[in-house]
Design a protein around this nucleic acid. Structure first.
Lengths: 314, 314
DNA sequence: CGGCTGAATCGAATCGATTTGAGGGACGAT
DNA sequence: ATCGTCCCTCAAATCGATTCGATTCAGCCG
């Protein structure tokens, strides 16, 4: 009987029939940044994605990668957003509130999980205590005696700007993640000498920022970056300029990545539980599929002091 | 009319119906290694994936991530392999010929694109000229005068072994990629003093290999690693041991990654066009969907000599 | 031995888009 | 004015699994 079926060319049940009948595709769409490369270069995304994939797989679901908007400004939305079957969509790195991606998915009625963004009506939110963590980092720097503190930030918006942000720019921070981490510094009572905006979380952009900040006449005694990759770029720039860390300048990051190539230095950083974050996103996906409205989930972070921060030079 | 439809709750055409009718899900399954984290930590996979995603998107298809087998030995196959809808599957990093992943997909009748593997009947193959590239690298080292040359390899199999490989082990190289790169060295006329097998392409594993190889009494004057990440780990180990590169030891890699944190060193490496590889995979996918049998596609590589190789110490 | 209840199997309807075929209407040509 | 053809529109069949309902058979009890 079974062999008869297979002799007739039967290859096992066709998933498409099941899917149509059940109305479920068993697929979770994950919207990552502009270019896959850009988001996958980022170890942060990768670890979150790994945790997410693990928990999603346990639910018997698949993970469909979808690129977000293409070129900045172009509203040529990725057609997959409109046509691909997905039961839930996860938006990594929040997207700005006005993001066409967000509105497109909302119009389709796809339940959303937003990561590090702003809660819309009816979509789940997963985030970490950025603001608190950054505040702790700021207080650490102040306690060490630093007063001239600069910061290198994640993108404010998807317009790819790079360089010091003026007061006007600071009022237009589209991405929650950059905004919250800036606010954390402010909470600590820090008014940064310079806020340098990087267009992405990449080592080389950190280096560029570091070169510019460290060459200034009013050179900061400490630089707090909003990501470990940016911070390690700053470290490289400091080395390049012959500055000792932390004797001449202190550098700190955010994320708590394992960066073997900085050895023997250990970056002072606010550690966030990336794997757990991915798993929480998975949990939120499960909740949405079960028809429940998942609560906003916020994970704690921890300041880990390494060897790259110390008292300012006398 | 349209507003009436939307008022009734119509959310646009349901992809599932279209899919059932057309028999196409519009989804390309990409089978990555054991754990997503492990494969995504690897910049090589990421760049290939990026190229693949770009060309697949141009075809209007989506990219479904599927983890390969779980724990080594466990034949608890990822259920997605059996149940998820996919029109074509891409197997990154070849899988061994006996891979249960391969047989599972073959039984389902899913057309396959195998990357850096062995051509089965009827599946497409995309690869680079590893062997030729490694031969060129070997000849470069020989021309510099090196005679005691060790090599750090990619995994032979999915059993996670780590350390020097003996003669017996060398006859059981399951992964084509490690086998071919070894063969390339042999083609150059090199009999490595030690073949050190790493269980994955990670910086820290390269460091472990470097520590062991460079501490030996018959310390090699050159180490050729099968990946840039392994090579940069070896570099770190050399620095750690106070060895100068390339004065005391030469180090070379494979892939041609951009590794900003090695600066000012530039790793001597065999460059492979990763982005283009991903695009070729996409082309193969397109061919399979069009019902054609795609040819085996082989990309060329190029030896780029950097600052990490030089004449052996006197 | 007959009737009733329970279980098992077979068939039909459903999910939603798509495609094809048929029918009707309109226009042009004879 | 009538016939033929072409186009447009609407309805029905299809894709494949699943689910629900109905029918049938068997077993048990009265």
């Amino acid at each position: 009987m079974l062999e008869a079926a297979s002799a007739l060319g039967y290859r096992g049940p066709n998933p498409l029939g099941r899917q149509l009948r059940s109305g479920r595709s068993g697929i979770v769409g994950v919207v990552v940044g502009d270019s896959l490369r850009r988001s996958f270069r980022d170890p942060v995304s990768i670890q979150v994605l790994d945790g997410l994939a693990t928990s999603i797989e346990a639910l018997g679901l698949g993970l469909l990668l979808v690129r977000g908007s293409d070129e900045p400004g172009a509203d040529a939305l990725n057609p997959l957003l409109a046509t691909a079957a997905m039961d839930v969509a996860v938006i990594l790195w929040g997207a700005t509130t006005d993001s066409p991606v967000l509105t497109a998915l909302r119009e389709r009625g796809v339940p959303l999980v937003v990561v590090e963004g702003r809660a819309g009506e009816g979509n789940a939110l997963v985030q970490v205590e950025d603001r608190k963590g950054m505040r702790a980092l700021g207080e650490h720097l102040l306690a060490l005696g630093h007063r001239r503190i600069a910061t290198v930030t994640l993108p404010f918006d998807r317009d790819g700007r790079q360089g010091p942000a003026d007061a006007d720019r600071l009022t237009h921070v589209g991405y929650e993640i950059a905004r919250r981490r800036l606010a954390g510094l402010h909470d600590a009572g820090i008014e940064p000498t310079t806020v340098y905006e990087a267009p992405a979380s990449l080592v080389e952009l950190g280096t560029a920022a570091g070169r510019e900040l460290l060459a200034r006449p009013d050179r900061p005694t400490a630089i707090a970056a909003q990501s470990d990759l940016l911070a390690s770029g700053v470290l490289l720039a400091a080395r390049e300029l012959g500055l000792r860390v932390p004797q001449d300048v202190s550098v700190a990051g955010f994320d708590g990545l394992d960066l073997p190539w900085l050895a023997p230095d250990v970056l002072t950083s606010v550690h966030q539980p990336l794997q757990a974050k991915g798993e929480l996103i998975g949990r939120a996906v499960g909740d949405l599929l079960a028809g429940e409205h998942p609560p906003t989930r916020t994970l704690d972070v921890e300041l880990v002091v390494g060897t790259t921060t110390g008292p300012p030079p006398a």
